[in-house]
Nucleic acid binder design. Structure first.
Lengths: 331, 331
DNA sequence: CGGCTTACTGTGCACGTTCACAGAAGCTTT
DNA sequence: AAAGCTTCTGTGAACGTGCACAGTAAGCCG
């Protein structure tokens, strides 16, 4: 039992291939009579266009590829990806585009992605958590349009993006600590080759100025374990700290564990602030005071930019969205 | 600048299309001389096969679709999906298959999935968290092979799956509570139209027999909020409980919050056991004693089953993998 | 009535592969 | 020396679609 083709539909409707094709592609020149005949024929035969055949002639694939650049072990530890994936699937589906997922954690993966994209297998590329200097970036300069959720360090002008105002968020948290009367405010940053790593530290320094000494700054890699390590390190270097701004909720969960192990009470002895307002923020004890990123909107805007480019827009402006302080119990 | 085709490669190598195609598809009849010439021509021209053209003639698409059946709001709240996605992408990539993601949360989504699959746009279907009686199941009876990660209630014999031994895991936790000397052991289950909902309750009842009264059982829907609600409900109905087995770590995180709100100490007053050993298990306070599911292996086996079916295996046996008790601080 | 526009329809070709087939060349067997 | 393998190669057809183009019919205008 073969799948019906456009020929079968045409025959059943008593018209030619061309007319069926025109209806399918929204051409205006189809008579009402032909329209109903074809529509009936389509539902009778259960016809579905063959994307491969269509791609072959249109040179479009009907799919967008999401490239996840985290090394494999850490991938997805952060629940934020979920929102992005969900929103992307939904928005693309409305345009009849499907979402293909690829990993770019190691060299082999990256090569595969490049082959895939260069081979014309996707109409657009959705970059996620791409680090500065990723060799993928050069390889993707030619080919279909690419956008990123979150800026790509060093390519801000080349690769359009939608992102939260990281720097603003960091300022909001730091100012809040200051308002609370905290004196020795430390920070645990993300990796310094990601926008979240760099810009959240910048916002922190914006507020504290020269008081933001190296001694009070430690670095993590977004994982919970790294947050715990960094916190232990800070407690050693600066036992008198009374607040810590952690650049992600997940790392903050690690920091809480380290503080507990050291016998510090939160928020009494040490105030803790996270970033993201992800689902872990409410499952820690105490629940995290954090900075909310409008993740759904970011995802939405990112996809919107990509769709615009796919539709032929020569240039689109990056989008920056405001963050918001969410006060819970950790500070 | 057009993309090179197989013709260009053939011309550059001084052979015919056929020879290039044979090399590409691993046919054994290619002379060593031709082989090197073609390989050089491929790398010189940067040739990549056009999947659309290939699909057209082979009737294969080179892609597998993962269908996520959770309603949209809850989707991905559980970090377990991450592992599955990651493993699936990797394993499929090795076979040059790409992973397409689709949602099947509402009627419109489901229709899209059916059209997609029926239209022959995927070589296989990977079902995730499909609930009993999902209309999708009937629609997918014809078409490419489908497997599920975790059994599909009511279709265990029709849709092959790889799953953890849910019932065993529930027994392990319940027995552990008994060993600890707990007397009034309650349970918060998952939704009763999912295997995790049903079988974890069965394991619980296996151990406690008639002591597993309705009064000590509450139901959640896997979300953290539902865990919190269910715990509050249990505390009301059975204030004397001294242990609670929660069918997922995420719900257990919610239960911990409810217990804390009620002033119960964990594990002193109430022992809490989770299920999954997901990332939230270590970010709660206290860290959760839980049942580890071998998620990576489950994902791996699921994909393996699907690949076997795609390769033409007429029938494959479902796989059940053992669980393991992980003792932390909550019990 | 001829010419011009508008609304619609059918047809041939191209897209880039794979596959079946035919055939050539070299080697072994009868 | 003929016949039969084995190894390798080239060629035509087919996959199902969209698009450019040609063509038809009807309506309108002068």
């Amino acid at each position: 039992m073969k799948r019906p083709t456009i020929h079968d539909v045409a025959a059943a409707a008593g018209v030619s291939r061309g007319t069926v094709s025109r209806l399918l592609n929204g051409d205006k020149y189809v008579s009402p009579a032909a329209r109903v005949a074809v529509e009936r024929a389509i539902s009778e035969t259960g016809y579905v266009v063959n994307r491969a055949a269509r791609s072959l002639v249109t040179q479009r694939t009907g799919s967008v590829v999401m490239v996840l650049s985290e090394p494999h072990e850490k991938l997805f530890e952060d629940p934020n990806y979920s929102t992005l994936i969900r929103v992307a699937i939904r928005m693309l589906a409305e345009r009849d585009l499907s979402l293909v997922m690829m990993l770019a954690g190691d060299e082999g993966d990256r090569e595969r992605v490049v082959r895939y994209v260069r081979g014309g297998h996707a109409d657009g590329v959705l970059l996620v958590s791409t680090h500065a200097g990723d060799p993928l970036l050069d390889a993707l300069r030619t080919g279909p349009p690419a956008v990123s959720c979150g800026a790509v360090i060093g390519r801000e002008t080349v690769i359009p993006y939608a992102a939260a105002d990281e720097r603003l968020g960091a300022r909001q948290m730091t100012e809040y600590f200051v308002r609370l009367g905290r004196r020795r405010i430390a920070m645990i940053t993300g990796p310094m080759d990601t926008p979240g790593g760099i810009q959240r530290l910048e916002g922190f320094a914006d507020v504290l100025g020269r008081k933001a000494t190296q001694r009070l700054i430690a670095h993590g890699d977004w994982t919970q374990a790294s947050g715990e390590r960094a916190m232990a390190e800070l407690l050693e270097r600066a036992p008198d700290l009374d607040a810590v701004f952690v650049a992600s909720d997940l790392m903050a969960a690690g920091a809480l564990a380290a503080l507990r192990a050291a016998g510090r009470r939160v928020p009494d002895d040490v105030a803790v602030g996270g970033f993201d307002d992800s689902s872990v923020a409410v499952s820690t004890h105490p629940p995290l005071t954090t900075i909310r990123q409008p993740l759904a909107e970011m995802a939405q805007e990112t996809v919107r930019l990509l769709l615009a480019l796919i539709d032929g827009a020569g240039h689109v402006e990056p989008v920056t969205l405001p963050t918001e302080l969410v006060i819970r119990e950790s500070a």
